[in-house]
Design a protein around this nucleic acid. Sequence first.
DNA 1: AACTCGTGGCG
DNA 2: TCGCCAAGAGT
Length: 411
Amino acid sequence: MSGSDPKGRVSPAKGLDVPALRRDLLDWFDRSGRDLPWRRRRTPYRTWISEIMLQQTTVAAVQPYFQAFLERFPDPAALAAASEDEVLALWSGLGYYRRARLLHQAAGVVVRERGGALPDSAEEWASLPGIGDYAAGAIASMALGERVPAVDANARRVLLRWVCAGPLEADGISPRELRALAEELVDEGRPGDWNEAIMDLGATVCAARIPRCRECPVLGHCRAGLGGRAEQVPAAMPRPGTVRIMLAALVIRAGDAVLLVPSGAPRVGLAPRGAEVFRSDFSSLNRGCWGPPTTDWFREDETVAWDPAQVWGPYLASLGLPSLTAGSFLAAGTVTHTITRHRLGIRVFALDLPTGGGGDPEFIKKDLTGAIFPVYPEGRGQRAIGQGDPVTPPLSRMATKILACGIKAGG
DNA sequence: AACTCGTGGCG
DNA sequence: TCGCCAAGAGT
């Protein structure tokens, strides 16, 4: 099954006409490659930021974040000098917040241990936090011209389709063999363009579902495509099923301020009767981001009643707030949100505290070691909730949804 | 080595 | 509505 090069060594190229394949794909890339912000001006730093943001994230979602991030942090020194909170605030809504924390850590390493100079080889890049084999290869090839592959899910799918007629064959190819194939194929003169071309092909033509083989510039080189079995390669990996979860969140407002607590803070609020705790440790979820206080996550059936006074009463009493009746709470509605495989139903309650008395924001801040931030009602000045305000802690999208629900219901 | 970590879009 | 997918890395 393996081809051989002119010196007779076994080659992993599996009979591909490598020169013709390179020419056909790069010609297509020159004609049809995507025009993306990080390609307009190629620098190692810009490539680094874009590659981290693009992990498991669509191009459309990344674009506005990329622009704002580079404006605020134009170089590694600026990024390293910022607080983690500020980095996370610019990441808010993008998801996978660990990426932002590792990026910030890596900038610190670059400044402290390398005098601010970014690595100049894939091997050195791979030693930085948050940089794996893929990102190291992508940055080194695209921004430094090093002849290394960048094997992400796109490249893996494209290469397997080229050399395998069906899913069983693809299943027989080890990660080592795939890596060897990828290394052999990288164009000597244009390694970065080659890697980008494979990813563009995978994103726009050689898609995971419903590949558009009739539009493919390299169909003639593709065993799976020529056999009409591209969609079956590689075989889908089994995934854990989704889990339905319920929780409640409390939006405590005092004037134009809202109470926020760190995402890893202990949950507050009692379990509704009949609900089974699914998860109570959130130390690794949305780490570094803030949001309104919430309960644990519960499994429940439809009959469970969430009485806000019962759920939140003891918590509020522990803060020394005056006793509150059920009428003090506003049932703001239910928000749905998905976090990886968890489908959340969030019952949002709002509670207005009188300002100027025992329940003013400073009082809350002191007793909860939480933070407060101003609320901007929807439509006023076109500002999202808390976004862009220097006192605003980083928020996850989940927190933003909860706040929007509570604020909207409150008028 | 399986599991975790966010979010939005699409068929 | 729902499952699948997207420029992965760390543990």
